[in-house]
């Protein structure tokens, strides 16, 4: 991601951001609300389009193209192909309420990747085993707890086998006792598959445990970046220190 800028109503939410995520890297973004961390994920997922700059996934431009040295917008041709390398898990799960758990997971592989039903079902059942929910395959999202829904949402995103997974405050809408199971699922996933992860979270213990690198953002800028022990353990910037103190004092 190069010089990416995003404004909402004249207010720059993300200011000229340069950020590279290595393949397989687990990057955690922390920061106060309104600091632009969720917007970064939404830009990578193409839920927002940058006002400036560009984003590349595996060396391919996302939703734009080079045209004689300049970036042009709206290159829809490669948009879907490049985007399908990115998966996202949302704060509010966003499962399809009218589809069973199994259909939720099978939908993208069959429609986006044009996989056969049998193959998609096999993949979905494999994922359900991984999140320990095979028994709920025919349930509907409304019949599940928040934690179970979020696990299904993770499986649904994984079914596309993305090279980058984005997690947007995935435990914020859950009951406190359910937070642990989701974090555990993500931790297991991080250990099993070589997939880059960009995680926005307020769970500092989890961040320290899972991250290869932690970024602290404030006012649309990266304030501090480094290994978790440095950023979370011995921050050098006063804004990072103040933020971490506020979080820990909660």
């Amino acid at each position: 991601m190069k010089q990416v800028r995003k404004e909402f109503g004249g207010h720059a939410v993300v200011k000229s951001m340069d950020l590279t995520v290595a393949s397989g890297e687990k990057l955690v973004i922390i920061g106060p609300s309104g600091s632009g961390k969720t917007t970064i994920l939404r830009l990578i997922m193409t839920l927002e389009t940058p006002d400036n700059g560009y984003i590349e996934i595996d060396g391919e431009l996302l939703g734009c193209a080079w045209d004689s040295g300049r970036i042009t917008k709206n290159n829809n041709k490669n948009l879907r192909a490049v985007r399908s390398k990115v998966g996202m898990v949302f704060q509010h799960f966003n499962l399809f309420p009218h589809m069973s758990v199994l259909d939720n997971i099978m939908e993208a592989p069959t429609r986006s990747l044009r996989m056969s039903k049998e193959e998609a079902r096999e993949r979905a059942i494999g994922l359900l085993q991984r999140i320990d929910m095979v028994g709920k395959a025919s349930s509907y999202p409304g019949q599940l707890s928040g934690g179970q829904q979020q696990r299904v949402a993770i499986a649904r995103a994984l079914a596309m086998r993305p090279s980058v997974m984005l997690f947007d405050e995935v435990t914020s809408a859950l009951d406190p006792e359910k937070v642990g199971e989701i974090l555990q699922t993500i931790r297991e996933l991080a250990a099993e598959v070589n997939m880059a992860m960009v995680i926005v979270t307020h769970e500092m213990g989890f961040a320290r445990n899972i991250a290869d690198r932690v970024i602290f953002m404030d006012h649309g800028e990266i304030v501090e970046s480094g290994p978790p022990d440095e950023v979370l353990g011995a921050p050098v910037h006063p804004r990072t220190t103040a933020f971490l103190k506020a979080i820990l004092d909660r």
Binding site: M88, R111, M160
Partner: peptide, 10 residues
């Protein structure tokens, strides 16, 4: 809509 985009559905 956002989930549909995230899953790259046509």
């Amino acid at each position: 809509w956002e989930a549909s985009i995230a899953l790259s559905l046509p």
